[in-house]
Design a protein around this nucleic acid. Sequence first.
DNA 1: GCCTATTTGTTAGTAGAGCATACAATTATG
DNA 2: CATAATTGTATGCTCTACTAACAAATAGGC
Lengths: 164, 164
Amino acid sequence: MAQPALIDDNSGGDDTQGNEAQGNGVELGALHGILGFHIRLAHGAVYRHFTETFADLELTQKQVSMLWLVGDHPGIAQIDVGNLLRMDRATTMTIVNRLQDRDYLRRERSSSDGRKQALYLTAGGEAALEQAKLCIDAHEAWLKSRFTEQEIEKLVEMLARIHD
Amino acid sequence: MAQPALIDDNSGGDDTQGNEAQGNGVELGALHGILGFHIRLAHGAVYRHFTETFADLELTQKQVSMLWLVGDHPGIAQIDVGNLLRMDRATTMTIVNRLQDRDYLRRERSSSDGRKQALYLTAGGEAALEQAKLCIDAHEAWLKSRFTEQEIEKLVEMLARIHD
DNA sequence: GCCTATTTGTTAGTAGAGCATACAATTATG
DNA sequence: CATAATTGTATGCTCTACTAACAAATAGGC
């Protein structure tokens, strides 16, 4: 069938969440007990579905997160965005650069601290963010569909214990 | 203090798990409710700690996972490793190539199916895997230290619901 | 058996994200 | 004021992941 890489194309219509590793009799073994391993696999699955969902908008996770943060905090400094998203300065640069090139974001020297770049959404950026939030809703619905409200709360709380 | 990027160097000795985003009065806001966002941040934190832990061995997550799988299943086909680790064929190739170049792994045409490459650990590969498992223990201990046994079980089960 | 489709491996090229390093400009500190 | 720290910037490297194209082997339909 020449599947397109790992993306679950779901073109069949009614197949049941076909994400399982088609173990050819081969199993994970002791690797199954490794928590970090499950986090990586879960992240990969989320990443792939995100990429699919945002294929039309051509936005990545980091780009959306950054648009979102700048939308919530106009004038936020580059360094603060980086800190909140756990990116170093160099990585933050590349994301801001891309969004600026696409005219979604603009930089402005901070008046209170000349070292900082204050970030603002352009009109295009606000429109893109609006679109993106709709996609996020769909993406999150897909992700959360397998959990109860309580489970989601517990899961978020546990994940926060890892990254906080 | 010129921190080395995002790695928590922990050279102070007794500082308390300094992973929090030093919010300059800036908060995540609605982004906090996004489950996918927490998965990404948690993955990032795990990834960074893993990289630190394996700096001496110079092994990545994928490389360790592959060594582990091949150790557990001598003669496993490349494609099956890829499926279990959710990598496409091209990505699997680069990982196998690197491990082969370092003489940790060897390829052998499968006798039962001429299309498949059966993978085996070399002596060096077995030694590396042994070392790696010690590092994994340390890494997992760091990760699991913030949870009870029951929480870990629940967390693994929930993460599996995402990637299975 | 034969023709065709599928599977598997391979190569080459692209892109995103992350990191280190070095430097400049600005601000903070003793 | 001199020095240190912070922030932004530029460059270069690595790892992961993907696409596309091709070759070899196998599987399936007739």
